[in-house]
Nucleic acid binder design. Structure first.
Lengths: 168, 168
DNA sequence: TTGCTAAGTCTTGTTACGCAACTCTGAAGG
DNA sequence: CCTTCAGAGTTGCGTAACAAGACTTAGCAA
């Protein structure tokens, strides 16, 4: 009846909503490729080895969701490029955080396959996730979760939900 | 012949490797639930509405990958709990970054459904991804990518690969 | 005896995805 | 003019992932 994964788009949770948009294996890698400078269909296909029909679908979704823009950069013959929008470029920090986790937990003896270089300060570095207020690291141990202004009215008082926001 | 998504586990890229482990819709949400304090099968199932067989599979994978540990906390009758390991807890910053992106780009007029509170400094705040060296924000515009120590020897000189690491 | 909870398994059906082949358009070569 | 080539897809086929819901097992409780 509904074998497709249910939509998380309307859940009161930004993680779920984001996962709904980008929560498949290829989307993140397409964005990575875009940050590496890829912009054309054949380029994405060659670099990632993704199936062409899947690529068509993912690019369409990224465009629909506003992370990429499809542009014809040549008319005769028609040629297209996919470029990141501001919304798409703003996903970079997430990839940097992902990358950091992978460097730490999935790299072998040899060390990280790829390193980041922060041009601003001209240092090789890695991403760190910190508190916007004090700049200290945000970790599960020192961070708690609260209902925000956008939390749906009709759920605010449900006992099971109240419980999860009043300590772990 | 190979309808299943190919494995990214051996790609020279920490993003791909991480996506290989957690790159499906449910895994990240299971971790989120765990950070909320869920630990039991029925609890995950109820909160997320995930199909039970899929849940069985995802929990097994998270345990196999070392992000969670399965413990029998009662013998008669046997009851189990799934608790985050250090490796799993270290994924929190990634979720925080994801959440930040969703807050910014997917929340409506009402604002963020959920906010984070940094207990260390006692402020409501959001996650920020910064350079480990200078503490300034890491964005695609100011960050470049370099081969790391773990980059495979036999790929280091391939022209197409060299190209992608020498500017975009 | 019936019922309840936790933690799964099993069955059935649909869909997502990989793979390869094919299409379409316009240019380039001989 | 005929053939070939490249970019950007689309189409057809087969398999495996997933959802939904029923069933199972184990122990306890009324």
């Amino acid at each position: 009846m509904s074998p497709a994964r249910p939509s998380f788009a309307n859940w009161p949770c930004s993680i779920a909503r984001t996962v709904d948009v980008l929560g498949d294996a290829w989307s993140s890698l397409l964005l990575r490729e875009a940050f590496y400078g890829s912009s054309r269909f054949e380029e994405f296909q060659r670099e990632l080895g993704i199936a062409r029909n899947t690529l068509t679908d993912r690019l369409r979704r990224l465009v629909d969701e506003g992370l990429m823009e499809k542009r014809r950069y040549e008319s005769e013959p028609p040629r297209y490029e996919y470029v990141l929008t501001e919304k798409g470029r703003d996903f970079f920090p997430v990839l940097a955080a992902l990358s950091r986790w992978g460097d730490r937990w999935l790299a072998g003896e040899e060390g990280a396959p790829v390193t980041l270089h922060h041009d601003t300060c001209d240092h090789d570095a890695h991403a760190e996730v910190v508190c916007s207020a004090c700049g200290e690291p945000m970790r599960s141990e020192n961070t708690s979760v609260r209902m925000g202004p956008g939390y749906p009215e009709h759920l605010r008082t449900r006992p099971d939900i109240v419980r999860r926001f009043t300590q772990t």
